[in-house]
Design a protein around this nucleic acid. Structure first.
Length: 498
RNA sequence: GCUCCGGUGGUGUAGUCCGGUUAAGCAUUUCGCCCUCUCAAGGCGGAGAUCCCGGGUUCAAAUCCCGGCCGGAGCACCA
């Protein structure tokens, strides 16, 4: 046996080669339903779709799969577009499934005329029962009135819930997706793009194959929960004599304790636990942005996952590691002291010191800090101090602890030696004369098991150098010995990761 | 219940289609050292997998076959 013939993509790509892909002829598509804010799961699909298109010099289509007016809203089209733009995913064509509504209707009619579908007026629960038992209903067998029913279906004969169009599959197929699934249903309601002009709407099962085929998609990708619908997808195209794209599945992307489903997230928003869809605890793209993750990190991470079918929750730490490496060289270093403890340094003279913004990259500049004789250090650092300890205030001077008092009274210290020993603790500090009240929001896992984590958002309170207030929102910084953060406003930042 | 899909170090993957060329590569994690006025980044090194289990085929199996176990998905007039 020989190895499968696969045109190798240009080197440098991280994804495995696409079967049957020809350079310059690959067309992929990302088909989100505009029914919510884009999240990390969307990012995975969109990035893989785009990456393959790029890899083969092909095209990417962004197709809003808007076939259910009850669920879709204009704001979500925009939210998805914005999310993709932030991610750096650039479609070559943007369209809506609803653009092709009459084409879809035509194919639906044609399918009935070809005997591949029928209008069914059975009640929903009766049909569910029949499908479970693998038995056909009377509508299916009624050939004589099939065309009249079809006419009535697209006319005004039926009201919502009175009729649907079903695929003529096999009611006894072991793959239940093939037991005459619904192709069209009647929905009264305003569609965000088409208003109330259309009432016969295709289901995903019908729209997806037709659109993919008609749009020239060569490689269609979707998450693995659709696997059993592949048979249906191809059966529809077969009966209609339409070209069949290749279908590739991959597992969903979700992190431990951070569900992506609206069922789990919506309630938190609705009951006010979480105020908006860009809350940094959420898996939405807006949240990742707010939290200080860079799109490049997300892309690298997604690509490192591969297109496996295994259902796993990848480690969030890996994403953090990618982000840290990208952010580290561009993040100014600043001082933030959490749970501050006051330190008086006897005999300290007032001075203005220059602090480097980055340990190795001088191009990030420096800042001036006014220091007197009163400082604050982090509570965590203070608890370990004993009389006689010598520590270094980073980039300032050494101090020697002279007095340790209980219950919140300031520590007293004196100026220490000039020697910067490798082993001595070097800690961040803020000067009383040059600091501001500061909060760092620290997002944690949203859910623990099935329960909302009531401690999912820690707010670290303390002092930061006043310089922090001068940084523009969205700036990435590192609070030394604390973690990487994104500036949210003058007195708040959001922690990205350590 | 029926059907389908997965199961490689703590974690995520590569390799599995075409059995041997590495008894398993990479990343993350973790430990040590170097560098360093950060517990960051960078450099070097180490740890960590009898490739779910049991049979079988074969000179040879993570890779093929059979059985089992565990996990997930689908069975909507949602996508």
């Amino acid at each position: 046996m020989k190895k499968k013939e696969i045109t190798s993509p240009p080197s440098g790509s991280q994804l495995p080669p696409l079967e049957g892909a020809e350079q310059g002829k690959v067309v992929t598509r990302f088909p989100p339903e505009p029914n919510g804010y884009p999240h990390i799961g969307h990012a995975k699909a969109a990035i893989i779709d785009e990456e393959y298109a790029k890899m083969y010099g092909g095209r990417l289509i962004l197709r809003f799969d808007d076939t259910n007016p009850l669920k879709e809203k204009l704001e979500y089209y925009d939210a998805i577009s914005e999310g993709l733009q932030w991610l750096g995913v650039k479609p070559d064509l943007i369209k809506n499934t609803s653009d092709d509504i009459s084409l879809l209707h035509d194919y639906g009619r044609k399918l009935v005329e070809l005997g591949g579908a029928y209008v069914c007026t059975c009640a929903q629960d009766r049909m569910r029962d029949l499908r479970a038992k693998g038995l056909p209903c009377d509508c299916r067998a009624d050939h004589t009135t099939a065309l009249d029913r079809l006419k009535g279906f697209f006319g005004t004969l039926y009201d919502q819930n009175q009729a649907v169009m079903r695929f003529k599959g096999d009611m006894s197929d072991q793959n239940t997706a093939m037991r005459d699934p619904t192709l069209f249903r009647i929905i009264e309601g305003d569609h965000p793009k088409l208003g109330g002009s259309v009432r016969i709407w295709p289901t995903y099962d019908f729209a997806a194959p037709i659109e993919d085929s008609v749009d020239g998609v060569t490689h269609a990708m979707r998450t693995k929960e659709y696997e059993l619908r592949n048979a249906l997808y191809f059966a529809i195209l077969d009966r209609l004599g339409l070209r069949k794209p290749a279908m590739i599945e991959f597992s969903r992307l979700e992190f431990e304790g951070v569900p992506v489903s609206k069922r789990k997230l919506r309630p938190l928003i609705d009951n006010g636990t979480i105020k908006s869809w860009d809350d940094p605890r959420l898996p939405t793209l807006a949240a990742f942005k707010k939290r200080g993750f860079l799109p490049e990190a997300i892309r690298k991470f997604v690509l490192s996952l591969g297109i496996t079918l295994a259902e796993t929750k990848p480690p969030f730490e890996t994403l953090e590691a990618f982000n840290r490496k990208i952010i580290d060289p561009i993040s100014p270093r600043l001082f933030f002291v959490k749970d501050p403890v006051e330190v008086r340094v006897r005999g300290a003279r007032e001075q203005e010191v220059t602090l480097k913004n980055h340990p190795t990259d001088a191009s990030l500049g420096s800042r001036r800090v006014r220091a007197g004789d009163t400082f604050f250090i982090a509570g965590e650092d203070a608890v370990h101090l004993k009389v006689g300890d010598e520590i270094r205030l980073i980039e300032l001077y050494n101090i020697k602890i002279a007095e340790v008092r209980n219950s919140g009274a300031p520590l007293v210290a004196e100026i220490g030696s000039d020697e910067i020993r490798q082993s001595m603790p070097k800690i961040q500090w803020t000067a009383k004369d040059d600091m501001i009240d500061y909060n760092v929001m620290i997002p944690k896992q949203l859910y623990i098991g099935d329960d909302y984590n009531t401690n999912s958002l820690e707010v670290a309170k303390g002092f930061a150098e006043s310089y922090a207030a001068t940084l523009k929102p969205d700036t990435h910084i590192q609070f030394v010995r604390f973690g990487f953060c994104r500036i949210d406003d003058g007195y708040t930042s959001i922690m990205s990761h350590r």
